[in-house]
């Protein structure tokens, strides 16, 4: 991606941005996030199919914000997160340069967040068939069996909160789970504590999750927690309209439309 390196170099040399958030070489055959502040280091930037981490997570981190105005390498999942973060007032248009990368690995620049939204309208979130099947299988279970399924699936969780750290939308200064007056969510990693944590996490992402799978990719135990958010996406779509981030669409759970189904109370 010479084009990407060139563009990043220009941005840093002209001092248009102070840091470029991108992908670089990691340990073994992996990639990792790198934060380039010197134009000369731009050569370290790479982009290929291994680059699956959602870099948007860094846009709200205080340590990164301190480095100055960022440019961010943004494949589709990152673009979706950017739109959602903008809709939630977490990033401003002028404080960020988006270096979009299409699925064909072409560099694309955006004038505005609205332009990103327009671009995304041709790249909608789709839930893969294999996940659809699993979700349907889980949903068809009797309640007790489904409960047992999740207790078992979540059993390996030891509350490292990597899922939270990897999620671009988990940007709260203080997470509910760290709120100990009162301690609504148990911090212990016993079945109840694990269930409470993951159910809460999924609920907090309802109507917001952009299906980047960063949580699942980050989980050291490989727990399929992305099934919860994928299923939630479908539920939100079914009850409140289409899914996917939008700048002006009000959040599904915090807004009311007269044509909402509200089948859960009616």
């Amino acid at each position: 991606m010479n084009e990407l390196i060139q563009k990043a170099t220009i941005l840093l040399e002209s001092n248009s941005v102070q840091v470029v958030i991108g992908y670089g070489k990691g340990s073994a055959n992996r990639t990792r996030a790198i934060f380039i502040t010197q134009a000369a280091d731009c050569e370290k930037l790479i982009f290929d199919s291994r680059c699956i981490q959602n870099l948007a997570v860094y846009l709200t981190k205080q340590e990164i914000k301190k480095l100055g105005k960022p440019a961010i390498v943004a494949p589709i999942p990152v673009l979706r997160s950017i739109v959602q973060l903008a809709a939630e007032n977490q990033i401003a248009e002028n404080d960020l340069v988006v270096l979009g990368v299409t699925p064909e690995s072409e560099l694309v620049e955006f004038e505005s967040f609205a332009a990103i939204e327009t671009f995304l309208s041709t790249h909608r979130i789709e839930i893969e068939g294999k996940y659809q099947k699993t979700i349907e299988m889980i949903k068809s279970m009797p309640v007790s069996e489904r409960f047992a399924y999740w207790v078992k699936e979540l059993e390996p969780c030891f509350k490292c909160y990597a899922c939270r750290s990897a999620c671009p939308l988990c940007y709260c200064t203080r997470c509910t789970v760290e709120n100990n007056q009162p301690q609504w969510i148990s911090v212990a990693s016993h079945p109840l504590g694990n269930l409470e944590w993951h159910v809460m996490r999924a609920m907090h992402l309802a109507g917001r999750c952009t299906d980047c799978e960063a949580c699942y990719n980050a989980c050291p135990m490989g727990i399929p927690i992305h099934l919860l958010t994928k299923s939630m996406l479908q539920d939100v779509a079914e009850n409140f309209g289409t899914y996917g981030p939008s700048l002006d669409k009000l959040n599904a759970l915090s807004s009311f439309k007269p044509d909402d189904k509200e089948s859960f109370i009616r």
Binding site: Q90, C172, T173, S254
Partner: peptide, 15 residues
């Protein structure tokens, strides 16, 4: 340096 744990997402405002 926290000042308030509110992160200013303003979803409360629409709710």
């Amino acid at each position: 340096p926290v000042y308030s744990t509110c992160v200013g997402c303003f979803m409360c405002a629409s709710a």
